[in-house]
Design a protein around this nucleic acid. Structure first.
Ligand SMILES: [Mn+2]
Ligand SMILES: [Mn+2]
Ligand SMILES: [Mn+2]
Ligand SMILES: [Mn+2]
Lengths: 226, 226
DNA sequence: ACCTATTTTTAGTTGCATCTAATTTAATTG
DNA sequence: CAATTAAATTAGATGCAACTAAAAATAGGT
């Protein structure tokens, strides 16, 4: 049985490794708002419990057991986010903090009932995939928006590493998951992008904002969502 | 800001006092599955924070602030129970433990959105009243089932202090909140009761079980629920 | 290859929530 | 009303999760 703190550390390690990155002690500490020394102690404890292997001064690697446990937490976090947005009417920039608490509620039945209630969603409100009961993730062919060429039609598919402030800004600009856009221009000067939505509205995104957006190529004919 | 343990102690004190009873250190400890010495320490802390007054060796009384905080917790607990039963399909004997966790999730917006989503219910799955935003409870005229006279029509309105095992048993006997029953007989010998439902099925309840049930008198003509 | 800056770990401390054991206070009863 | 019993509190210990400060190990630059 993991404590709440152990769960948060495990999830942080998983998230950092998942980005192809390395889960350094400092990285984890920064993500959790604690200090490196505290993280070292927790990593030792997680290693003790067989969730990861820890080579002091080198780094950390999740075991199969650790990976499975982390995916369960990710599943719970994203299911709750989905519930908050789709059922309770939260904005997508208001859910993270609450889901951060809800993910620790312990009940297999709760998680599975919630998933079923929501229609076993494959993606959360930020476009992140929701692991299924067995930890499997839906696969998609995503591209960074900033790599899209002028004239290309794209559909917003995910916001990666989006702070609440970024999400709020995007919301105000009318950008959400599923939104169809046409790339109008890449500005050489500041690498900002000009886009146009299906209603003909112009949307300008700074390089910093656009860099967080991932898209699917959108066939000109078919269309899923406004 | 209260810790989870402080919240649980406050809620226990409120529940024990509410039954007209006294919230003795031992009562609280038993309710929480801890020891009296631990409770003393927590009561001192809650008194420190202005939620209750504690006269050592005498007893404890909630302040207005403490009462309000306790009612908020009760509200959250019962709203979650309602959600679990009405939306996620939990049985009424499966929700307490999970709600015991969910009640500690901190978010005003979550509580209010959940209440609204559920249609601002006034009673939880066990027939207990759900405090509104301002801590107000719906009033009803309830009577103990064991005081009902032979031939009387009653509607099950609440199960008081029901363990999960009791709730499960009642469920198996087909008894739930809103159920209409006619009292057929009180057995002198063991104080058990014979009842009949609207479909003509006979239900026999031991004194121990019947003692937990509270009813409204049911007018012979009008009828709310099967 | 050595020195230095950075990262990580270890050691020792604090606050919290529990426990057991000892003490104190209150209640009961002969 | 004194003695006994029961209840509550205090004292001291433990485990957890954090911290700061000190030590150790690694990585880079000359
Ligand atoms: Mn969390
Ligand atoms: Mn998300
Ligand atoms: Mn609780
Ligand atoms: Mn209830």
């Amino acid at each position: 049985m993991l404590t709440r703190s152990e769960e948060d550390h495990l999830k942080a390690v998983h998230a950092l490794l998942g980005d192809g990155g390395r889960a350094s002690t400092n990285n984890v500490a920064e993500r959790l708002g604690t200090k490196a020394s505290s993280v070292t102690v927790m990593l030792k404890k997680l290693a003790e419990k067989g969730l990861l292997s820890h080579a002091p001064y080198y780094g950390v690697k999740l075991t199969a057991k650790g990976k499975a446990a982390a995916l369960k937490l990710v599943r719970k976090h994203r299911l709750w986010e989905t519930f908050l947005v789709e059922r309770l009417g939260f904005a997508w920039d208001e859910v993270h903090e609450v889901a951060e608490q809800l993910e620790h509620v312990r009940s297999e039945k709760l998680t599975d009932s919630l998933a079923e209630y929501l229609g076993d969603p494959a993606f959360d409100p930020h476009g992140d995939p929701i692991p299924d009961r067995n930890g499997r993730l839906a696969l998609r062919d995503l591209h960074p928006l900033v790599a899209a060429t002028e004239g290309q039609r794209v559909r917003i598919a995910a916001v990666k590493d989006g702070s609440d402030a970024l999400l709020h800004l995007l919301g105000r600009k009318g950008i959400g998951i599923g939104k169809l856009l046409v790339v109008k221009a890449h500005q050489e000067f500041d690498r900002s992008m000009e886009l146009e939505d299906t209603a003909g509205n112009r949307i300008s995104l700074s390089a910093q904002v656009a860099g967080h957006l991932w898209v699917e190529s959108a066939p000109a004919t078919k269309q899923r969502k406004g």
